[in-house]
Design a protein around this nucleic acid. Structure first.
Lengths: 250, 250
DNA sequence: CGCTAGTTTGATCCGGGTCAATGCTGGTGG
DNA sequence: CCACCAGCATTGACCCGGATCAAACTAGCG
């Protein structure tokens, strides 16, 4: 975690005019991440009804989606790119509490205000719905509501899991767990094999698992040299699964 | 975190015949922690109806309330003592994910199985309800249901908060935050002032905030010597609030 | 081609982990 | 009533992993 980064992130991100593009949804039925999203619970009829209340939003890197404390008046389904979910601590450090991947649903806190902030880590697109429209739609489509509930359970579970990762574990254990958990999440989206995309920066990874950027970098390098993974542009390729799993258990 | 402790904890805790006592609820209307519990949402009539489906359970120190992975067929409201909520990690370490204080509601995961374990840190009493009875009752009492929802929100918020505490923070910052958060929770129960009960062991505190028992002890001692707190039996007394708050922010 | 943001790598230092000895306290039985 | 014991807390000595600071390197991108 580093103070400078979080400050920079904020000052470089204009809070006004956040959304780069905002146009009608083209065709949900052809949407490639639909199977992995809450929309998978909708049949053709419901889908076109749903399409009518949504808009496509796109975010340039570092653009803010919403801020902690703001009224939550819109909800999102990420369709491409990567969203960082984070809290700014009193001392200026940034704790990333999660990553929003394509298919992930964001922005519906239990209360009326967001409890964490969200910004785009890379160029990102999402479907945007007004909270009221969305809730009304959900209440008229029971299967969809249940699917939303499932999504919430999954998020809670991920958060609990993350709590156990953040404790006093060794750097290579944290990084190994991180790689495996990202792999598991990509698997649900595109069934990928040993290749794991990591679109976020080293700093983001550090702020997520609780390590300094230098330590993150060194640990990746070490795992690469040990032949456990191979570092590739914007990701890694897993070479030795058993070794990686063993490290993750430490 | 220490491996031996978690192992001991398990082996010393018989899984059979866990509940020491199990008798009818005496008189909910006179229950001293009712204002702080979900039962506060019930009027006299509903309360006696509620009384009829509950039983009082008591747990000796180290007795298990429920285990991660088990079917969740009973729910609890803690009435006295302290419950530890924890996960056992693959390497044998124990991560305490929360403490159940008097008034806290436990044991209703979103799915049908518990996602963490719970045991008594000290002699503890709780009201026990069969899950089905409880859910049926709740569905017939809307105010109660809403109150339950609030409790869930609070728990989720605490978990997120805890995530930000576990990161790479200094030992005195972690301990200071811990003391202040325990104080805030006791305040809701008995409005106590600068005196903060800490019924759990040093090991429990360490497994919660992510510190070694030795470091926990040393940090308490240091804060005491610095005049920020005074260590008293089973707790601390806060002597210098501003200093403690300042430490917590680091 | 050169600028900028991000990444890697090196050198150094310190906080907290580890191991182990000692101290304290409350419960038990002679 | 006191001696003993078990479990927990405290304290000390030592060491190591990761933070910090800083420099060199690399990859996009205009």
């Amino acid at each position: 975690m580093s103070m400078p980064t979080s400050i920079e992130t904020l000052s470089r991100s204009p809070t006004a005019n956040r959304v780069r593009g905002l146009k009608l949804l083209a065709n949900c039925s052809r949407c490639s991440i639909r199977p992995a999203s809450v929309c998978s619970a909708l049949d053709a009829g419901a889908l076109s009804e749903f399409e009518a209340i949504g808009r496509e939003a796109s975010f340039a890197p570092r653009m803010i989606v919403f801020m902690e404390g703001e009224r939550a008046d819109a909800v999102y389904t990420v369709t491409s790119g990567l969203v960082r979910l984070f809290r700014l601590l009193p001392n200026g450090q940034r704790q990333i509490v999660g990553f929003g991947l394509p298919g992930d649903f964001l922005g519906l806190p239990r209360g009326e205000r967001h409890v964490y902030s969200a910004d785009a880590a890379v160029g990102t697109t999402a479907c945007r719905f007004h909270r009221q429209d969305f809730i009304m739609f959900a209440e008229n489509h029971t299967r969809f509501l249940r699917r939303l509930h499932d999504a919430a359970v999954k998020a809670l579970d991920l958060a609990q899991e993350q709590m156990t990762q953040l404790g006093p574990r060794r750097a290579d254990a944290k990084i190994a767990s991180f790689i495996l958990s990202m792999r598991a999440r990509w698997m649900e989206i595109n069934g990928a094999g040993e290749s794991v995309p990591l679109p976020m920066s080293r700093q983001d990874i550090g702020d997520y698992v609780g390590l300094n950027i230098a330590t993150v970098s060194r640990t990746f390098t070490r795992l690469d040299r040990q032949g456990v993974i191979r570092i590739v542009p914007k990701g890694v390729r897993i070479l030795n699964f058993p070794a990686l799993r063993q490290l993750a258990e430490q």
